[in-house]
Design a protein around this nucleic acid. Sequence first.
DNA 1: CGATCTTACGGGATTCGTAAACATA
DNA 2: TATGTTTACGAATCCCGTAAGATCG
Lengths: 294, 294
Amino acid sequence: MTATLKQLRAFTAVARTRSLAQASALLHISQPALSVAIRNLEEALGGALFNRDSRQLALTPEGREFLDRAEQLLHNWDQSVDAIQQRFRLERGQLNLAVIPAFALNRLPDLLARFHGQHPDINIVIEDIVMERVQRAVREGRAEIGITFRPDDLGGLEFMGFGRDRFIAVIPATHPLAGRESVTWRELSREPFIAMNRGSAVRRWTDGAMAESGYEGRLLCEANQLSTIGQLVRAGMGVSVVPELCRPQMDGYGLCSLTLRAPVVEQEVGALVRRRGAISASADAFLEMLTAAG
Amino acid sequence: MTATLKQLRAFTAVARTRSLAQASALLHISQPALSVAIRNLEEALGGALFNRDSRQLALTPEGREFLDRAEQLLHNWDQSVDAIQQRFRLERGQLNLAVIPAFALNRLPDLLARFHGQHPDINIVIEDIVMERVQRAVREGRAEIGITFRPDDLGGLEFMGFGRDRFIAVIPATHPLAGRESVTWRELSREPFIAMNRGSAVRRWTDGAMAESGYEGRLLCEANQLSTIGQLVRAGMGVSVVPELCRPQMDGYGLCSLTLRAPVVEQEVGALVRRRGAISASADAFLEMLTAAG
DNA sequence: CGATCTTACGGGATTCGTAAACATA
DNA sequence: TATGTTTACGAATCCCGTAAGATCG
């Protein structure tokens, strides 16, 4: 014979009301059922919790001590169960994201605003970091979801693409090419080039495209952040090529964005997760929104 | 559908072993039973605790959080249940006694030594106080058991006598009466009398006996404590009458104790409790020893 | 194939509710 | 007698174990 949750709830109800009749009404069970429940609990604990003299029940000293413990146990129980249920209902939780800056700056805010509107009690942590560090953050568990271009080496992670990004050329609005719809790498090579720093994925892809196109322009300078590059272009230092994701940002700087050809540089954008099934309910909800929205 | 203790124990076992097969062996239930238990728990909580991809289980983020809570809940549960069971098994507990000094000094030590030998982990608190305060201590719940003479007014308390006490005369060992077997109040009245202070029960009874016997001796002095009275008698100041309970004590002072007649002063000694059924297991055990031993 | 988890189903234990007996003011 | 608890017993529910099915290495 072992004590049960129901028995504990029954016990606290009886202890509060000092009456089986009243307690049975509270618990929505019959008086006799409550009577045997209490008796079974007492048997499980090895002694009496109530005195049955006369027709009203009174706690024994042991019952009085156990009442304190029982109420605390039940309180902790209900609290713990509710906490997890809230997590599953997305009424509570944490969403840890690692996002490349191009996405974080241009696409993420609206997505997160929508997510936050639907699930206002989920805390959100964004690591806006470069692609390599996004992979690391996901692999090491600091982020449940990474948003990045498709990596060359997944290293055991899962990648779910939800969009394609064609790189674009960005030039000053006053530039002679500004009226054009599209431009080729060769045409760009007349202007000094402002590139991402070596070692970055964007730089690797632009370098590859330059080699493929026979580009022969001058590489004027390098910077770590796309916003810096944008400002350098705006200042008339030269031109650059950036992910299409950044178009709103570049528009904001007053730059002209042109479709880029010969070759087209296209990368898949998507979500990176450790294992698809192993993410939290909040992360899963966001992932669904992500893949649905493209 | 609601979560259950068994389900929580099942969950922690599975989380530890990461295997239904191993956990089912630990829990002494079949694999399928464990499978449905976990599934029911997940249903009750509103989401998955494990990932079932491949053939080994891995905790979800929610499962990982719930594991901490579950282990703490179970630990608290087991601890609380065990604490009460220990109380009922007399492996733990408290025994609060209020005892008149005559009993506390002469009879209680051996009784408590025996009780402590049988139940070494029960803490004992003794209030050795005068009869009126014994009644108050029991009535106010500071003591579960009082040991005293039968009070005139029970005031709602219960008294269980377990012995009778015939008051005795105490005289110096060098006194002419010292060889006698018994003595009467009248014979005592030749000597100065050393009495308990007014207001004490012993004094009330000795006063009554004096009146009944036509005692006409001198009341030389009064004291609060029987040990003081004993020492005064030993110093040759006079004689006194004390409860028979005190005979060992008086013997220890080197005094001579004589049976007292005309009238015999006899009082019932017993245990005073709030309500017979409402005392703790430890108090009940001691009460049984008390009434059995006389 | 072998190991593991899941599903299906029959048997057994537990628990509940109704009805009757019991106790007390 | 009225109120409230306990006991008795039939019924429903829940839980477990065996057996069969499914999945992956």
